[in-house]
């Protein structure tokens, strides 16, 4: 039996309210917050980036899983905001968690789903006996062009998962769905991503999330009724709720993982932070469905079942909710400074 042995979340403490961003750009705040279902987003401090967030999440995962970092034999960091274009974030994480240098590591990029792609890689390596434990991390300090629709939700945060034997949550099965869909991209050297506006909906998010989830349900012979908790990638609160409706999933099965409302869209961290919050509150024997989405475009679906090993794990490290509750508000000017949106040269 293989699956998640330990998990850890990290969300920076700063928040900016969506209505503060709307005020600056002359938009009606209620229109924006009602349209997105998001009231505020998490903002990384000036001294935080994808590497620092990944390290904090990774340390929480090690603490929660009580895994010796020397036994981690693979580390993957999925993000679209790696601090360097060339120089791996994963190598910094490896060194900071005190893992052995005799391991494989790499940075992954698939818009918002690179962290779940890493989970599939770790599962394959653990199952085949290549590694005892693999670690995958999904983190972003997402950038939205000032004034763009994405700026209201583009947030910072991440989650780390250790995959191995004797899991707290068994990964029963996983599958993916990938097509070339130009819904959202960032070219080499471009500071901010571009997107296709409404094109990000039907042909991108909904098609991939729904098709991938349907494929997993059919492959595993599972019905929506058998599942206790569902997490979909959360670009806002409306998209996952609508995808759930299309699949006949009742809203109460989405609520626990819907972290986007108060921290925004943490991109590669999004579905994984939802999963971390669900696991924090899970009891043995719960069935969990996760489907990520990455623009470009693709989805990874996972069917998990919690085991007796999960009892008592949540409190061994700070919970996702404790990070969500810990917050300090910024005004737009300070937010623009610490996210380096003000140019000095």
């Amino acid at each position: 039996m293989f699956g998640i042995v330990g998990w850890g979340a990290y969300v920076p403490q700063f928040r900016i309210r969506v209505d503060e961003i709307a005020r600056v750009w002359g938009r009606e705040p209620r229109e924006i917050t009602d349209g997105l279902g998001v009231s505020e987003k998490a903002v990384a401090n000036y001294d935080e980036d994808t590497a620092t967030i990944s390290v904090e999440a990774a340390r929480n995962a090690l603490r929660r899983g009580q895994v010796n970092s020397k036994k981690i034999a693979a580390v993957f960091v999925g993000s679209e905001s790696h601090p360097y274009v060339i120089k791996p974030t994963a190598a910094t994480v490896v060194e900071a968690i005190g893992a052995s240098p005799y391991l494989t590591a790499g940075d992954l990029e698939f818009a918002c789903k690179a962290g779940t792609a890493g989970m599939q890689a770790c599962l394959g390596m653990a199952k085949s006996g290549m590694v005892e434990y693999g670690m995958t991390i999904g983190t972003d300090t997402a950038q939205g062009r000032p004034g763009d629709a994405l700026e209201y939700t583009a947030a910072s945060g991440g989650a780390a998962f250790i995959v191995g034997a004797k899991p707290a949550a068994e990964i029963i099965d996983t599958c993916s769905y990938t097509t070339d869909t130009p819904d959202f991209w960032r070219r080499e050297g471009a500071e901010y991503p571009s997107h296709g506006g409404r094109f990000t909906g039907e042909p991108a998010y909904f098609k991939h999330v729904v098709e991938c989830t349907k494929q997993l349900l059919s492959k595993t012979g599972t019905s929506v009724k058998d599942i206790d908790q569902v997490i979909f990638h959360m670009p806002n609160a409306k998209f996952p709720s609508r995808a759930a409706k299309l699949l006949g999933i009742p809203p109460e099965k989405m609520e626990r993982g819907l972290v986007v409302k108060s921290i925004g869209n943490t991109y590669s961290g999004s579905s994984l932070l939802g999963l971390a919050r669900v696991l924090d509150q899970a009891k043995p024997g719960e069935t969990i469905l996760v489907t990520s989405f990455g623009s470009g475009a693709g989805s990874d679906s996972f069917l998990l079942k919690t085991t007796k090993e999960i009892a008592g794990l949540a409190e061994r490290a700070p919970t996702t909710q404790s990070y969500i509750d810990r917050k300090k508000y910024l005004d737009y000017a300070v937010y623009a400074k610490i996210r380096r949106k003000i140019k000095h040269e």
Binding site: N45, D47, D49, E56, P83, A96
Partner: peptide
């Protein structure tokens, strides 16, 4: 202690990380 960015060597140089 937490893990944070300490300094960077200009726009093109390395980023230095450490405890804070």
């Amino acid at each position: 202690s937490v893990f944070r960015r300490i300094s960077e060597d200009g726009k093109h140089g390395v980023i230095n990380y450490a405890f804070k």
